[in-house]
Structure formats: structure tokens, C-alpha cells
């Protein structure tokens, strides 16, 4: 970056902030957002999840997940998961070529949202930031007691967003061709939630 360029950009910052200050309207209050309550039942969560193309399956913990996964994904060869022994070793430094070969990722979700079927997945549970979208199929394991009714309650429970984290609601999808819904756009082709 040239010296001149730096000066220009720095002055842009000052100009933008000065214009925002000069042109802003008189201050209005910031409202308090109420909780609104709502239905936090597992039934509601699984029903909405099915509506967005996901699927819930009950499992017993701490019994091993392998038999259930073998039944659900008999063809998955390369599985990435911090919850399974013998899974492909994935960490934040794993090269793209290896990530691209993952058939199935099994990760732990933190909070489920009944109104929209979304599950909070923090970076700490992802092994690699790209894993939840680069994998062909995604399984999220969720404690049914961690289901809340709405996004308000989900955000209220988040200790923070960490470096990266996402609410994942169902499999990757698109309707960009004539509004026809197609599951499996660029991210995971399917999403199974293992509830316990």
C-alpha cells in the first residue's frame, strides 16, 4: 500500500465518521427485547427440523454412536468426529485436500432452537471451521435438555460467539432454479440430529 493510499483511506474513516455524526437524527431509545416465551418442546423442535429437511434420531448416551451411524450412513468411509474412536484425524491445520474427502462429520451441538430447528455449533466443537460445510453429510449430537423456544433464548444462553460459530438449521439447500427446492447445494447434503 502506498503512503498516499494510506492517507486517503485514513481520511475516509474520518470523513465517514464526521458525516455520520453531522447527519444522524436526534437520539432515540434502544428498546429492551422481551423474552416472549414460546414452545421449547422436543416435539416442536423435531417437527420443525423435519420441515426444513433435517431428521432427528433418538440415541442412548453414553452408549457408543457407531452402531447408529453405521445404520444411518452405511456407505460413509471417511468419518470425522471428536466423539468416535478411529475417526479421521482433523484439526485446524488439516489441509484442504484431506477435508474435501470427508464423507461424514459427527459433531456436538450446544443449543437447539425449537422455533426454527437451528442448532448452535461453536468453533470449539468443529475440529476445523470448514468441516460442517465441506463434509458430504453432517450429524449433530444434541442433549434434548438444551432445546430452547426461540432465538432470543438461544442468544441469551450463548456465553459469547467465540472466534466463529454458526446456527445450523437443516442441510444445505437452494431454490435458485425456478424456486424448486434442492437439498444439498454446496454444504452438507443431509443433516441428522442425534438426540439424547
Amino acid at each position: 500500500m502506498t503512503h498516499q493510499h494510506i492517507n486517503k483511506v485514513t481520511s475516509s474513516r474520518e470523513n465517514i465518521l464526521a458525516a455520520a455524526q453531522a447527519n444522524k437524527p436526534a437520539e432515540t431509545p434502544l428498546p429492551t427485547v422481551p423474552d416472549f416465551g414460546g414452545d421449547a418442546s422436543v416435539e416442536r423442535f423435531t417437527q420443525v427440523l423435519a420441515g426444513i429437511g433435517g431428521r432427528a434420531v433418538w440415541v442412548q448416551r453414553p452408549q457408543p454412536l457407531e452402531p447408529v451411524l453405521a445404520q444411518l450412513f452405511p456407505e460413509a468411509r471417511r468419518i470425522a468426529s471428536p466423539l468416535l474412536a478411529g475417526a479421521v484425524d482433523i484439526n485446524a491445520q488439516t489441509p484442504t485436500a484431506l477435508l474435501a474427502e470427508i464423507d461424514l462429520a459427527v459433531l456436538e451441538g450446544e443449543i437447539g432452537v425449537a422455533e426454527n430447528g437451528a442448532i448452535w455449533l461453536p468453533e470449539a466443537n468443529m475440529l476445523h471451521r470448514a468441516l460442517p460445510t465441506v463434509t458430504q453429510h453432517l450429524v449433530l449430537v444434541l442433549d434434548h435438555r438444551c432445546i430452547v423456544a426461540t432465538m432470543h433464548q438461544a442468544y441469551a444462553r450463548l456465553p459469547g460467539t467465540g472466534g466463529y460459530g454458526a446456527f445450523v438449521a437443516g442441510p444445505s439447500k437452494t431454490a435458485d432454479i425456478e424456486q424448486s427446492l434442492v437439498i444439498g447445494a454446496h454444504g452438507a447434503r443431509s443433516l441428522v440430529v442425534l438426540l439424547y
Binding site: I52, N116, G117, Y164, G165, A166, F167, V168, S172, G187
Partner: peptide, 9 residues
């Protein structure tokens, strides 16, 4: 939709 598939922070 009730929410977008990915709401990423």
C-alpha cells in the same frame, strides 16, 4: 423459512 440454514458468526 423459519431461519436461513446457516447463520454464521
Amino acid at each position: 423459512q423459519p431461519v436461513t440454514t446457516y447463520t454464521s458468526h
